[in-house]
Write a protein that binds this DNA or RNA. Sequence first.
DNA 1: CGGTACATTGAAGGGGCTCAATCCACGTGG
DNA 2: CCACGTGGATTGAGCCCCTTCAATGTACCG
Lengths: 257, 257
Amino acid sequence: MDSLLVRKLSHFVPLLPAEIELLKDMQSAELAVRRHREIVSEGRRYDTLFVLLDGFAARSRVVGNGGRQILNIVLPGDFIGFPGCFFESALYSVSALTKATVSRIPHARLVALFDTYPRLAAKIFWSFSCEAAMYAEHLVDLGRRSALERVAHFLLELHARLQLIGLADDRTYQMPLTQEQMGDTLGLSVPHVNRTLRQLRDDDLLVIEHQQVIIKDLDAVASLAGFKWRYFQRFGLPGQLDATDEAKTLQVVAISA
Amino acid sequence: MDSLLVRKLSHFVPLLPAEIELLKDMQSAELAVRRHREIVSEGRRYDTLFVLLDGFAARSRVVGNGGRQILNIVLPGDFIGFPGCFFESALYSVSALTKATVSRIPHARLVALFDTYPRLAAKIFWSFSCEAAMYAEHLVDLGRRSALERVAHFLLELHARLQLIGLADDRTYQMPLTQEQMGDTLGLSVPHVNRTLRQLRDDDLLVIEHQQVIIKDLDAVASLAGFKWRYFQRFGLPGQLDATDEAKTLQVVAISA
DNA sequence: CGGTACATTGAAGGGGCTCAATCCACGTGG
DNA sequence: CCACGTGGATTGAGCCCCTTCAATGTACCG
């Protein structure tokens, strides 16, 4: 069975068999990370990319006055290291929200990929674009949506992302975040997150119990949140980078090598 | 003289002379865009990247209830098209805030770059990382900063970015945004932007008059806003991709090929 | 059994919004 | 040359969403 990384990437860009092999080959042995432990620390140098194989993690920044902003939630199959990994030192911390396992991809391997297998490098970078699009969506959330819309939108996005990797079924999924962590991602205080969840529950739209999200009325929640699929659409690359075009790809590799 | 694009890119990653030539060559003739005109429209397919050569532009999204969120301000030398250009249809609109001129880079040229000149492609993608980092910073703004901090931080960031391309001097720069546009980027209402600017003025920290920002007390504003350079640092690629180290670079290619 | 982590609820206050009026600079046509 | 229209800045009054502070409840764990 394919790894979650492969499964997620192929949702966006078709992967050649050789590329799947290469992805597998690039990763180190699995590495266990304990809950609350930092995988990447803000301000520190680091020269490896990670892939989250299992568990939840959060990319975050602490701000002067003691507050904290979670930039995004990292799910299994996601890369850890963009965009910070391209700077002198990490711009943000990434810490495990649950027990997690990761594998490492040495930075040098990624760089080398540009020479040896540019098309795979391109595909990986495209997945980074997807991540940037999620940031942008999050921006709209914080800038222009009410607390109710934010919470609803957040939970729907998580649902959609988890479904993509087979970790959520139709209406429910496990969601290990505390209300404090939700508040930190949505720019809300803990009590208000709580009240907002209560309202969703009272309105029979959505319940969280025992870390399980149960969406009672998907359409209503989606319309309340203004949720659209957007960045989950497939990439649009007419003809190019297409898995059915293997001959051409291999030829290119030969030339550039 | 080098173009602004080259000048900006070289701040982050060293460019080889051949790469500079190539960048120049990839761009179409200049294209004039009138104020308020959309360069890219949300939801529409489009298959070219743009480079903003002159003027200001904004990447934005309209939300259900009539509001609008500006995701970031596009300055001369910036690419237009990330991350939206990698999706079926544009995720956001980009519209000119002033009279502007752009040049086009056909999407196909960029894709081809991965085969013909992967290292330049890599550098361009690295500049996209920088953009993603700005999104993240903007997230912290909206999530965890007060109106006063937001406005101050925003104006300092613009100042720093404009200095990078030689469009701002020590303490002043031209800033063509209306208060409404500032409000749309900072998630604030027009009256409140106004009151906040007034406060900055009353405290002798910063003035805007005739579309000119005058920073009276840079240190005070910076500390108020918690402004740090962060994503303006150079990229940290020890040895690799370094223009002064071409021999080693080639060696890496040879090994990994 | 006490301790810790987290959820829940209440009361009070404030930061920022909405609504609305006014002002100002500028361009345009009569 | 002036009247008018328009886009934008400015200011005020009232209110509401969300925060802060604080207390209580509850599950789990050593």
